[in-house]
Nucleic acid binder design. Structure first.
Length: 598
RNA sequence: GCUCCUGUAGUUCAAUGGAUAGAAUAGAGGUUUCCUAAACCUUUGAUCAGGGUUCGAUUCCCUGCGGGAGUACCA
């Protein structure tokens, strides 16, 4: 049992014994003592004052006295106003290090084999545009949240749903036919996804011109948007696609294959992969069947023009379109289908969708419609709604070309990593391949940490004019700390120092910074657990930073290999190796690799 | 119009209703004959405004002001 659990029980018993207050150990609000006060764990006693009919100081003193009488590992306590600070005996911390330091998976729980899986959908790109910084956030979050939930002890299936069909794809296809002159990725030496993206922008440009001309001729803008020849033609193309027209399908397959080749390359660089990839072209028909079922059940209705709707006004929302008047399906139709498919296929415990907060409304509707269709598992659908990445002058928009391209950004980060490494000049002994790999993991470490350290639910800002940092609260800072520690441990091994240490030894005493490191290590499993519950890799990132900082501060003024007392030396090297493991495991949750040297 | 999100140092981010609001960066100053200075140490600097609930509010509620998103027969 961990110290926090024992302490909670002891407090619970004290409250019961002294004041007949019944509170389960699990709901004792224990917190870590703030740095400026002495102690390790703090109980705020204000909430009990009324029931105990004591003033806060007396109350705290009585509880403290009761606890130290009944719990050996609590050495002492002090009271500041209503704050009761407990001090844990060093023997406990030393014991903890002795037990856990060699555990290579410290902080990572194992999932029960038969646990129903948690399905995490992320990435879900459109095949009409290359990936940009917004998608990077999605991919990194999706990957990291998956790892996080795994680390907290669940089976996770990572899935990707490629939006490979729809009116938007037809726009790119149409623009390519019209303005492309047969251009291919090979002919222009352009990544396929970028090439197709170019024609999507091209469509928008010409379409806007057409609308403008119509408006000048006196057509209402709303009307012009519908009647512009390019839009009409795109609609017709979609209809032909859904009807299985050979010519359209062939072009569609050709252009999509270009895009996939490009995506694969970017996914590899980002280090993300999936257990299963769905294609909307293969699932959207299921959605149409569901809509028919809904019509039969009478929970959906058809308008005069043939379009199908769901009336959500009773739920405080509007009417929602589910099938166009020409019978083609929309986003919602498809998502209904894939939700059902996924539920049936995995028997999932939770269906998590990593999708931006601009789609909050969509998921509200999705859950409501699933419920109306009679699926009792609708409440297993969880929209992990993350914030937008904004640029200094606003949101990124693919159609308007105001985006930070994913490939360009990674390229730039790798160049910066190389420059900085060369300046430091510590990696000259590495082979060219090793150097290249190092620059890559440093670049991605900086990028991933930059994104993941921010609370996922919040919008974040990226300023392209300021490059992403490599110093301070950054990925490379933690990677560097890891490399330094590994260097120490290697030297210890080379010098024949055995790992492990003798617990029963009077020379073995914890310095203040050392204790800080141990306490931080101790907090890892609980941190992973609460981070997973909050779907927040940011909490893990912050933890990794705290640990690295605590270690650096300790390392700065404490001798390790130069410590004369052999047992103390062995303890400190053990502690170093322990910290390295914890950093490696936390960074792994973030999808960040840590180097052995840098 | 309606709905949702959001407002913390110059800037980018923290803070399960708890103690004196933390970091990083930028600014000022310091640390290397010694285990990796991408490090460490000192220091300047902030809760949009006004009410309310509470022993206690950055956090919860209301009003105002500012920013963003959604409300599409786009996805």
């Amino acid at each position: 049992m961990s110290i926090t659990e024992s302490l909670s029980i002891a407090i619970s018993q004290a409250l019961n014994h002294l004041y007949s207050i019944n509170l389960l150990p699990g709901s004792i609000p224990l917190q870590e003592t703030r740095r400026d006060f002495s102690g390790d764990y703090t109980l705020v006693v204000f909430p009990f004052v009324k029931q105990a009919r004591k003033n806060p100081e007396t109350l705290a003193n009585e509880i403290g006295t009761h606890v130290i009488q009944h719990l050996d590992v609590i050495k002492n306590f002090n009271v500041v106003k209503g704050f009761l600070n407990f001090q844990v005996a060093d023997t406990y911390w030393l014991q903890f290090v002795a037990e856990k330091a060699a555990d290579a998976r410290f902080g990572l729980a194992e999932a029960p084999v038969d646990a129903p899986p948690v399905v995490v959908e992320f990435s879900s790109p459109n095949t009409n545009k290359p990936l940009h910084l917004g998608h990077i956030r999605n991919n990194l979050l999706g990957w990291s949240v998956s790892r996080l939930i795994e680390a907290a002890g669940a089976n996770v299936k990572k899935v990707n749903l490629v939006n490979d069909r729809g009116i938007h794809i037809c726009k790119s296809m149409l623009a390519w036919l019209r303005f492309g002159n047969g251009e291919t990725p090979e002919s222009s030496h352009v990544k396929g996804d970028h090439l197709v993206g170019k024609y999507y922008v091209e469509f928008d440009k010409h379409y806007k011109q057409e609308v403008k001309q119509l408006v000048e001729r006196g057509v209402e803008e709303e009307q012009a948007k519908k009647e512009a020849p390019l839009m009409v033609e795109a609609q017709q193309m979609l209809k032909r696609w859904e009807d299985g027209d050979k010519e359209v399908r062939a072009l569609w397959e050709k252009m999509n294959s270009w895009v996939y080749a490009g995506f694969d390359q970017t996914y590899r660089r980002l280090g993300v992969a999936f257990d299963k990839v769905y294609y909307e072209s293969q699932t959207y028909l299921l959605g149409k069947e569901l809509v028919q079922k809904g019509l039969d059940m009478g929970v959906l209705f058809r308008k005069e023009d043939g379009s199908v709707w769901c009336d959500l006004t009773a739920d405080g929302l509007d009417q929602k379109l589910l099938l166009r008047r020409d019978g083609t399906s929309v986003y919602m139709t498809q998502d209904l289908g894939t939700a059902l498919l996924r539920h049936n296929e995995f028997g999932a415990d939770r269906l998590i969708y990593v999708v931006g907060n601009e789609q909050d409304y969509h998921f509200k509707v999705l859950k409501l419609v699933l419920g109306k269709l009679g699926f009792d598992w609708a409440d297993k659908v969880f929209h992990l709604s993350y914030g937008m990445v904004e640029l200094p002058n606003g949101k990124m928009k693919s159609r308007e070309g105001t985006v930070v391209d994913a490939d360009d950004l990674i390229d730039e980060m790798e160049r910066t990593a190389e420059e900085m490494s060369r300046e430091h000049g510590k990696n000259d002994a590495l082979s060219p391949e090793e150097q290249k790999h190092l620059y890559h993991i440093l670049a991605l470490g900086a990028l991933k940490y930059f994104i993941l350290k921010v609370d996922p639910t919040k919008n974040m800002l990226f300023n392209p004019a300021e490059s992403i940092d490599f110093n301070g609260n950054t990925g490379p800072f933690i990677q560097y700390t890891h490399a330094r520690i590994r260097s120490i441990v290697r030297k210890a091994e080379e010098g024949g120092l055995k790992t492990g240490f003798e617990l029963q030894d009077e020379g073995l005493q914890l310095g203040e910074k050392e204790r800080g490191v141990v306490k931080t290590l101790f907090a890892l499993p609980a941190t992973v657990k609460s981070a997973a519950a909050a779907y927040s890799p940011a909490m893990v990132a912050n933890y990794a930073y705290e640990l690295a900082k605590a270690f650096n501060s300790f390392y700065q003024d404490t001798p390790i290999l130069r410590e004369e007392n052999l047992n103390l030396r062995r303890f400190r090297v053990t502690l170093c190796a322990f910290v390295a493991t914890a950093l490696k495991n936390t960074m792994d949750i973030l999808g960040i690799e840590v180097p052995e040297r840098m």
